[in-house]
């Protein structure tokens, strides 16, 4: 039962991303409905201009009732809300997830989080976090206090 929603919705999202890709966002790999890789280009005129990053989305069969697991892989952006293991501190990926959000809207949120950054520095607790975090960022007890960056 849930499989139907999960696969039908991801198939729709995939064709929508292919037909009408957002600027600076490109599908690198989406062979299965288990995980997708998307390239995210830093926007011109921001601290990340000219840089290319990769996001990995991992879906459970409960998607979109449950958020996807989203991490940066490879070249990790230096950003106050992005840990050097690729985990992203962004409320819509965790307790503020809603089934009306999508791969597209999450990519755009992350792109805008990068674009509004004014100082390229890692999170203050980065070294502690990457030593203690489990592999999935969804297992972290996040606290969200700064919506401005």
């Amino acid at each position: 039962m849930s499989m139907a929603l999960f696969t039908k919705r991801l198939a729709k999202e995939l064709s929508d991303l292919k037909i009408n890709p957002p600027v600076g966002i490109e599908i690198e790999e989406a062979e299965t409905f288990k995980s997708w890789k998307l390239n995210l280009d830093g926007v011109d005129g921001t601290l990340y201009a000219g840089e290319r990053f990769a996001l990995e989305f991992r879906f459970s069969p409960n998607y979109p009732m449950e958020s996807p697991e989203v991490v940066f892989v490879g070249n990790i952006p230096i950003h106050p809300h992005i840990y050097s293991n690729g985990h992203i501190c962004l409320n819509v990926l965790y307790n503020q997830w809603s089934p009306v959000l999508s791969v597209r809207s999450i990519c755009l949120s992350i792109q805008s989080m990068l674009s509004s950054c004014t100082c390229k520095e890692p999170p203050p607790d980065n070294s502690h976090y990457i030593r203690t975090a489990r592999s999935s960022p969804k297992l972290t007890q996040w606290s969200f206090h700064d919506d401005s960056v």
């Binding site: 929603l5 009732m65 958020s67 997830w97 009306v100």
Partner: peptide, 20 residues
């Protein structure tokens, strides 16, 4: 049916998916 499935999840906290 879509909304009821969402509201049945713990993560929904009984909130509208659009405006929470």
């Amino acid at each position: 049916h879509c909304l009821l499935r969402w509201l049945a999840t713990e993560g929904s906290r009984g909130q509208c998916p659009m405006d929470r």
